[in-house]
């Protein structure tokens, strides 16, 4: 009878002990698991933030490059326009009033130009002859 009681007591104590141990171990394991999840989450957040930062930097850089290219191209167009200004205006004048400029109306202008170059023309003709 005492032995049975003793056995029951021992079993009960053993159960208690096991219960405590298991609970304690489980708690520890769950705590570790939770910590590792948090760590992984933090890593992911850090990584995403770094990626965002890199994208922002690249976007800013690209925007700057595009802006510079636009400015350079605009400058190039302006320079080309300035270089060819006389051809552009000549073409415009011809297109606008080319049909209306009679050669007879130009005679005075042509003779004035010939007069301005007269000496050079005479010199060249005499040397050529």
């Amino acid at each position: 009878m005492f032995l049975q009681q003793d056995l029951r007591l021992t079993t009960s104590q053993l159960n208690e002990y096991m219960k405590e141990e298991i609970t304690r171990n489980l708690k520890e394991e769950f705590a570790k698991y939770e910590q590792s999840i948090n760590d992984a989450k933090q890593l992911a957040i850090d990584s995403i933030q770094k990626t965002n930062t890199a994208i922002e930097e690249q976007r800013a850089q690209l925007g700057q490059q595009v802006q510079q290219q636009i400015v350079a191209e605009k400058q190039q167009l302006v320079e080309r326009f300035e270089q060819n200004m006389t051809d552009i205006i000549n073409h415009y004048v011809l297109a606008a009033i080319g049909d209306q400029i009679d050669l007879n109306d130009q005679l005075e202008y042509i003779l004035a130009d010939l007069e301005a170059n007269r000496e050079a023309i005479i010199q060249d003709i005499n040397h050529g002859a």
């Binding site: 200004m85 000549n90 011809l94 080319g98 130009q106 202008y109 170059n117 050079a120 023309i121 050529g128």
Partner: peptide
């Protein structure tokens, strides 16, 4: 050449066209 003329002698080329006048007056236009 538009208006004006171009005259060529034995050794010389005289551009008396409107285009040449525009070229000479380019700085004024700019």
């Amino acid at each position: 050449i538009g208006a004006g003329c171009v005259l060529r002698t034995t050794n010389h080329y005289f551009d008396m066209s409107l285009r040449k006048t525009f070229t000479e007056k380019r700085e004024i236009l700019m």
